[in-house]
Design a protein around this nucleic acid. Structure first.
Ligand SMILES: NC(=O)c1ccc[n+]([C@@H]2O[C@H](COP(=O)([O-])OP(=O)(O)OC[C@H]3O[C@@H](n4cnc5c(N)ncnc54)[C@H](O)[C@@H]3O)[C@@H](O)[C@H]2O)c1
Ligand SMILES: NC(=O)c1ccc[n+]([C@@H]2O[C@H](COP(=O)([O-])OP(=O)(O)OC[C@H]3O[C@@H](n4cnc5c(N)ncnc54)[C@H](O)[C@@H]3O)[C@@H](O)[C@H]2O)c1
Lengths: 226, 226
DNA sequence: AGGCATTCGTGCACACGTTCACAAAGCAGG
DNA sequence: CCTGCTTTGTGAACGTGTGCACGAATGCCT
């Protein structure tokens, strides 16, 4: 009963690692590798081998003892579990600095996330074309979402406008949001939000940085690099 | 003995939330709020109130029972603990799509992370100026790092070049790296790496998206969007 | 001054995540 | 077929993170 397995909930921590395994396995497949041990995959992914096996075990028992995992099959299973067997078009809200970089980034389309549209509120930006995509007015959001069956929205507006952007996305029917603005969004519980906050990342880095060098040897450390 | 408190290790999960509290508290301070309860802060940060109190308790007992926390003082304490009492200049490696967006983003400088330099390997990009910063050749990395006392590097190169970029950063003396390329970097254990991987974020979103719609009502849901 | 309402700080129990360690399962080679 | 080697899959122990619940402290009001 394999469908039983696919109903089982996968731990968040595992879901966050599956994409990493997937990328590595895909790369390896392209290089002609067709079988791989959990040890090797763990090494490439920078994690513990037992963790890899436990993670993969949530997908089912697709390994062969004494041998390892068949790369192609694993790729298929992970893609299936993550829902990557079809494209997920995304809309980008905010055609500024970041929005343009995102729209112009080919990596999304390649990975199954084609840009279904870019919208902005600024009439000066609406109509301009970036990376082959014409920027449209935010009022067109609902029709884009419906026409292209979009369920994922990306917010790349200034912080102050992010909640407004989220409201528009939710109203248009989007149910998942990736937010680049450094604010906490309020959305219905049925909508999932993930945040990418660069300032937070940098601040975490510098906490450790400060902690390391912040001891008695701060000055010494600095001059040692010379 | 307050310095005793500052030596205590703060849990990773807490370190990751402190920047969020900090931003909220800073904003509130600007709006004239000078005292705040854990309940209110929790609401604004979208977390549990007990968690807020426990997080803040790692900094010391800076709250007043029956009243709350003095915003300005808390801001100071968090900044001190995170090591934000001084600027942390960063170097950006890779002046492409993303590197330009990052360099042009004012938010970094404002938050204490001035761009000390942008380097690239492409002679066609070296010398060009973006957002007031001249792009320099990657060979100049060591001198930039030393001259500006940089300990944080940002990698915004294509995946294939990311390890090379990391090697250059490490060789130049950088000890913390924020990596935007979707690869696992190999660095000495003394160097801390954090990764921002947009594709992973999107894939996590679509796992839940698929799971939600993937139940018994998959087809219904699909056609209902029409 | 005393009582009351409020809010912090934290002990405790529980959930989640990680790692070890090992039996079970497979392959290869004689 | 049997032995030995490899590698999976998972139980169990441990560590980390979360949230409740409540005592302790504080301010305010009478
Ligand atoms: N640029 C970066 O490298 C970078 C880095 C980290 C974080 N961010 C965050 O990403 C967000 C965008 O940054 P940016 O540099 O692209 O800003 P930006 O100012 O260049 O672009 C913002 C765009 O959003 C549009 N906009 C404003 N209000 C809108 C609304 N209500 N609806 C739709 N569109 C609206 C503006 O017209 C503008 O085109 C910010 O929140 C920023 O903090 C950016
Ligand atoms: N653009 C985006 O929105 C976006 C989104 C998600 C992830 N990313 C990731 O960010 C990275 C950069 O993306 P991009 O769109 O800016 O790419 P890009 O191709 O536009 O820019 C890459 C830059 O790096 C430089 N470079 C190449 N090799 C180098 C080396 N060895 N040392 C120094 N510089 C080198 C190139 O000359 C180029 O200027 C990629 O790994 C990509 O996967 C980008």
């Amino acid at each position: 009963m394999p469908s039983d397995r696919s109903r089982r909930r996968i731990p968040d921590a595992t879901v966050a690692r599956l994409p990493v395994y997937l990328r590595i396995l895909t790369e390896q497949a392209e290089e002609g590798v067709d079988s791989m041990s959990s040890d090797r995959l763990a090494e490439l992914a920078g994690v513990n081998a037992a963790k890899v096996r436990k993670d993969l075990s949530y997908l089912g028992s697709y390994g062969t003892r004494g041998v390892g995992y068949e790369v192609a099959y694993l790729v298929y299973q992970i893609r299936r579990e993550l829902g990557l067997t079809r494209d997920w078009p995304v809309v980008i809200v905010g055609a500024g600095n970041l929005g343009q970089a995102l729209a112009g980034y080919g990596g999304f389309g390649e990975r199954g996330f084609p840009v279904a549209g870019v919208v902005d509120i600024d009439p000066g930006k609406v109509g301009s074309v970036l990376a082959g995509v014409r920027v449209r007015h935010i009022d067109e959001l609902p029709s884009i979402v419906q026409a292209k069956r979009v369920s994922i929205g990306v917010i790349a507006t200034p912080s102050l406008a992010a909640q407004d952007a989220a409201d528009h996305l939710v109203a248009a029917g989007v149910t998942s949001i990736l937010n680049f603005a450094p604010v906490v969004l309020t959305v219905p519980r049925s909508v999932e939000v993930r945040k990418v906050d660069l300032a937070v990342e940098l601040q975490i880095l510098c906490y450790h940085e400060q902690r390391r060098g912040g001891g008695l040897h701060a000055v010494t450390t600095r001059s040692a690099t010379a």
